[in-house]
Design a protein around this nucleic acid. Sequence first.
DNA 1: CAGTGGTCTAGACCACAGG
DNA 2: CTGTGGTCTAGACCACTGG
Lengths: 233, 233
Amino acid sequence: MNNPSFRNWQSVQEEVLRRIHARVWTPGNLIPNEADLALEFGCARTTVNRALRSLAESGLLDRRRKAGTRVAAQPVAKATLDITVIRIEIEDRGQKYGYQRIERGETVPPLAISGAMKTHATRPLLHVRALHMADDTPYAFEDRWINPEVVPKGLAESYETVSANEWLLKHAPYTHGEIAFSATSATSEEAGILCCNKNSALLTIDRLTWDGSSTVTKVRLLFEPGHQLRTNL
Amino acid sequence: MNNPSFRNWQSVQEEVLRRIHARVWTPGNLIPNEADLALEFGCARTTVNRALRSLAESGLLDRRRKAGTRVAAQPVAKATLDITVIRIEIEDRGQKYGYQRIERGETVPPLAISGAMKTHATRPLLHVRALHMADDTPYAFEDRWINPEVVPKGLAESYETVSANEWLLKHAPYTHGEIAFSATSATSEEAGILCCNKNSALLTIDRLTWDGSSTVTKVRLLFEPGHQLRTNL
DNA sequence: CAGTGGTCTAGACCACAGG
DNA sequence: CTGTGGTCTAGACCACTGG
């Protein structure tokens, strides 16, 4: 059984993938344990572990101590979207980035905002609205609320030339966050900003970031009609 | 410098995160190499490697041989969406799953479809359209094209009780795929199926999966108005 | 060329959870 | 209780790439 051709974890992984694909190991069924596979593949158990762990992370295997390793019955595809600064996103596509601040103010937010951000309902937050452009056409409308208690330095910024998107990523650390993707109909105001028809379907991203137990910022991004977020599986 | 309190890779990772967060190590700057950190933390280099590699995968560090490890200048947040069988998705939310096939036929697809799937323009494909329901209300409309050359067994299925979504995941292996998220306006037909107003903004997922160099299936999912895909950062 | 991360190894101990 | 994966270690060699 000793097969000396699997010398690194990538080749072990490929062989495991091949067997799953060829239905040698079928969904829901156990595969041999790490020690046996190491023996068969002629490598150290650590190497097998690395290969299998990686496949488990991507959702193709289900591993449990003592219970062993199974081929996932319902393979969970993980679509990973890279969320970067919008300027970089546009420049990476070879387009010219443009930015225009629309509004900046310290405002008491709607209850929906203060509720989500868990700030006092009567406390003003920094509110910045801006348009990101690609090759001089509207790309995304950013509507953002910033918690000045957590980011006091943010109050000193005008956000006229550097977007809040970019400034915050550089200056406001966060520990975790939530992100939601949805579709919304353009209001007439949003249509005016994005130069599209009212009620156009807009891909929408809502993000809420935290630093420990405090909310840093809440942002809604509305993309131009037709915009797609793509990734591979 | 020997600090015996970092005994496992998770605690090393936490300490590294702490230093980045506390601006001890700042974006764009080099951090010590693995050997030095291992010395400082009082653990093996392998352990440091594991911690740093994991942070690099999540986009917080930038590692290059010889050049060393830097804190990422533009931290790339990775939003990972789990794409599962729709039935499971609904049941996991504690709702009752319902399914209704709308149409099944072997049809020559529009050029947009055969073009994307790289099949012959005149060759019929299996076309299945169906509605997924949660607690008896429309949840998602699935419009799918299946390549019978790659999945011949799929022709024998009626998809009346088991959705193509679920049948394919179980019986048709794939090697890779593309996925795109967008927003579209409901046509009057789609509005009728999803029981919503015409031109409602619908979150849309287009998926194209491959087995080697052949296209397995192309599917468009239109979700009920207001539907959100959520994840953490 | 030489410094860095990338990986492999053999062996060891441990944590968890199935039976 | 015991089999399984999870991890750590010390040491080694390798691959890449910056200077």
